[in-house]
Simulated scan of single mutants.
Amino acid sequence: MGQLEDFRMFALIVEQESISKAADHMGIAKSAVSRRLSLLEDQLGTALIQRTTRQWQITEAGRLLYERTQQVMVDVDDIFADLSAQKHDEHGQIRISIPMQFGLSYLSPVLLKFSDEYPNINLTVDFTDRLVDLIEENYDLAIRISQLKDSSLISRKLADVTHLFYASPDYLKSAPPLNTAEDLKNHKLIQYGPLKRFKWNFIGPKNKEFSVSLSSHMNTNNSEFMLAAAAAGKGVARLPSFFASDYISSGKLVTVLNDLKQEPFGMHALYPGSKHLPRRVRVLLDFLSEHCQLKHRKEVGDTA
C-alpha cells in the first residue's frame, strides 16, 4: 500500500497546488512530503513537479500520473467499501444539479433522508434550471425531467413522471364540457413556457399517438404560479403530478381528463460516460431510484 499512499499524496499536492498545504492536510512535516515526492520521482525516473522558490508547476508526466491514478484510487476505495458493506464507510463528495422547483418540492426530502443514512457523504446540491455542462463544470450528476434526445451523457431512468390536467371546481362549473382532448380547444389553457400556440400529444386506441393543436390563455415559466392560477379559476393546467398534491388534498384543484393517456416523461440521472462513476455516486443513484419510484407509485394511487 506504500506506493498507493504515495499516489494519494501526489494527488493531494496537485489538488492543493502546494507541498506545504498537502503536508498540513496530512498532518506531517513539509520535509517528509518533499522527501516522499523525490523518492516517487526517482522510482518513476521523471520529474512530476517543477518547483523553485517562486514557482510551482506540474509536468506533463505529473499530469499523466495524476489522471491515471485517479481511477485506480477510486477503484481501491470501492473495493474496501464493497467489502465493508457499511453505510457509515461511504464517504466523499457528490456534486449534483437539479431543476429548481422539482428539486425543492420533490427531491429535497429524499436527499435529506439520504444524508441521514449516509452521513459521511458530502452533498453539494445546485438547484438551477440551467443545463449545466457536467464535464466542464465538474458535476457528478444532473437530474432532468424530459423525453431525452441523443446525448454523449449516460442516462439512468429513476422513475416515470406522470403529467395530469388540473382545474378548479369553480372554473369547471361554468366552463364548456371537458371530456376529450379536442374539448381542450374550447378551454382557457395555462401553458408552461412562452409558446402561445403548441401541441399536446396523446396516446389513442391501439396505442396510436395523436396530437391536438392548442392556444394558451396564460403563459408562465413557474409551476407554482400555474397551480395558483388554476386554483384561482384561470383555466386548465397540465403539470407533473407531484406538484399538485397539496392543492388536490385541499380541494382547490381536481384532475380532469383522467382517461386520456399520455407518454410519460422520465426522471433521468445523467452522468459523463467518460468519467468513472465512484461507488458513492452509484449508492446515491440506487437510493434516488428506489425512493422516487415509491413516491411515483403513491402519487398514481392518490390520483386514481
Rank of each mutant, 00 (worst) to 15 (best):
D89P: 00
T46S: 14
C292F: 00
L12I: 04
E182S: 10
G45T: 05
D129G: 02
L239K: 05
D24S: 15
S249N: 11
R279H: 03
A244R: 11
T52R: 05
A32N: 12
L270G: 09
L111V: 03
F7C: 08
K21G: 09
G266W: 09
L288Q: 01
L111M: 05
L148T: 11
M26Y: 09
S241M: 11
L285Y: 03
I19D: 06
K149W: 15
L131S: 07
F127W: 09
H88G: 01
T255N: 07
L65Y: 07
Y271M: 06
Q57S: 12
P169T: 02
V281C: 05
G62A: 08
N219F: 01
H187M: 09
N258D: 14
F165R: 06
F198M: 04
Y166T: 14
P264E: 02
N219G: 07
V132R: 10
I13T: 02
Q57T: 08
L44Q: 06
P205M: 15
S216C: 01
K157Y: 01
E5D: 11
C292S: 04
H25Q: 13
G266M: 07
L270K: 03
L178G: 00
L131W: 15
T162M: 11
L12H: 04
V132K: 09
N207L: 13
F102G: 06
P278R: 00
H25M: 14
L123F: 05
Y166E: 11
M218H: 15
M73C: 04
S245A: 15
G45C: 06
A81D: 04
T180P: 03
S216R: 04
V74P: 04
G103R: 06
L104W: 04
P240H: 10
T128M: 01
P169R: 05
K113F: 15
V300H: 02
M100D: 06
M9N: 03
D24P: 01
N222R: 10
S213W: 10
H88N: 08
P176K: 11
E263N: 09
L131C: 07
D24W: 13
Q70S: 11
N138D: 15
G62K: 03
L184N: 08
D116W: 13
S38P: 00
G266N: 09
N186I: 04
P176W: 08
A230D: 05
R130W: 07
S155R: 14
E224G: 06
V212E: 09
L104N: 07
E117R: 12
G204L: 09
V33M: 14
H88R: 11
H296R: 08
Q43D: 09
L112S: 11
I135D: 12
E90L: 10
D82H: 12
K298Y: 14
P109A: 03
G27D: 00
S168D: 03
L141G: 00
L123V: 01
W56Y: 15
L184Q: 01
F287C: 01
G251M: 10
M226I: 03
I96F: 08
I79R: 02
Q86V: 07
A231D: 08
L277D: 00
L189H: 10
L40P: 00
V212C: 05
H291E: 07
K185E: 08
S155W: 08
A81L: 06
K113G: 13
V283N: 06
E209H: 14
S152E: 14
S211Y: 10
V161C: 11
A47I: 12
